[in-house]
Amino acid sequence: MTAPKELRVSKDRRLLTVTFPGHAPFELPAELLRVLSPSAEVQGHSPEQRVTVPGKRDVAISRIEPVGNYAVRIVFDDLHDTGIFTWTYLHTLGREKDARWQSYLDELEQKGLSRG
C-alpha cells in the first residue's frame, strides 16, 4: 500500500482524515481508531484475546508519529500509544469503517459496556 498523500487531524483532535492517492479521503474518528488500535493491548495475540475497549467516546488524538515509510503511531490523550497503524490498516479501516463501527457497537451492547 502506498503512503497517504495527506494525514490531517481536525482542530478538535477527534477526527483523522486520510487521503490516499487516487482515493477519496477517509474520515476516521479518534474513538474508532482508539478502540480498533492494532496494538497487542487491544488485539491480543489471537482473535480470542481481542479486547472490547469501552468508554472512549471523548478520546482525542494527541499526536501522530511516523514509523519508517510504512506506518504511523497514533498517540491518544488517554496515553494509549502502542498501536502502529500501517498504511494498509488505515486504508482497510477507511473502506470498512461503517461495518467495523457497527460490529464494535454490537460488541459493547452484548457485553453490557458503553462508549462512556
Score class of each variant (00 low, 15 high):
1 M>C: 12
1 M>R: 10
2 T>D: 13
2 T>E: 15
2 T>F: 14
4 P>N: 07
4 P>A: 09
6 E>I: 03
7 L>I: 04
7 L>W: 05
8 R>S: 08
9 V>H: 05
9 V>D: 07
11 K>L: 13
13 R>F: 11
13 R>P: 06
13 R>G: 08
14 R>V: 07
14 R>Q: 15
14 R>L: 09
15 L>N: 12
16 L>R: 08
16 L>T: 07
17 T>I: 05
18 V>P: 04
18 V>I: 10
18 V>E: 06
20 F>V: 05
21 P>Q: 15
25 P>Q: 07
26 F>M: 06
26 F>V: 03
30 A>W: 01
30 A>L: 13
31 E>Y: 07
32 L>K: 03
32 L>T: 03
33 L>G: 07
33 L>F: 09
35 V>W: 11
35 V>R: 10
36 L>D: 14
36 L>A: 12
36 L>Q: 15
37 S>V: 11
37 S>Y: 11
38 P>C: 12
40 A>F: 12
41 E>T: 14
43 Q>I: 10
43 Q>E: 07
44 G>Q: 05
46 S>P: 10
47 P>S: 10
49 Q>V: 05
49 Q>D: 05
49 Q>Y: 05
50 R>E: 09
51 V>A: 02
54 P>A: 00
55 G>L: 01
56 K>Y: 00
58 D>M: 02
60 A>L: 14
60 A>T: 15
61 I>T: 06
62 S>C: 11
63 R>K: 15
64 I>A: 00
64 I>P: 00
65 E>D: 14
65 E>L: 15
69 N>A: 09
69 N>L: 09
70 Y>S: 13
70 Y>P: 13
70 Y>A: 08
70 Y>N: 11
72 V>E: 07
74 I>N: 02
74 I>Y: 03
75 V>A: 08
75 V>M: 05
75 V>G: 04
76 F>N: 00
77 D>Q: 01
78 D>M: 00
80 H>Y: 02
82 T>L: 06
82 T>I: 04
83 G>Y: 02
83 G>N: 08
84 I>K: 09
87 W>G: 01
88 T>V: 08
93 L>N: 04
95 R>P: 06
96 E>C: 10
97 K>E: 06
97 K>G: 06
98 D>P: 05
98 D>I: 11
99 A>K: 14
99 A>C: 09
103 S>C: 09
105 L>T: 05
105 L>Y: 09
106 D>W: 06
106 D>K: 13
107 E>C: 13
108 L>R: 05
108 L>Y: 08
108 L>F: 12
108 L>Q: 08
108 L>K: 11
111 K>C: 04
112 G>E: 11
113 L>G: 10
113 L>S: 06
114 S>P: 08
114 S>K: 15
115 R>T: 04
116 G>N: 12
116 G>K: 12
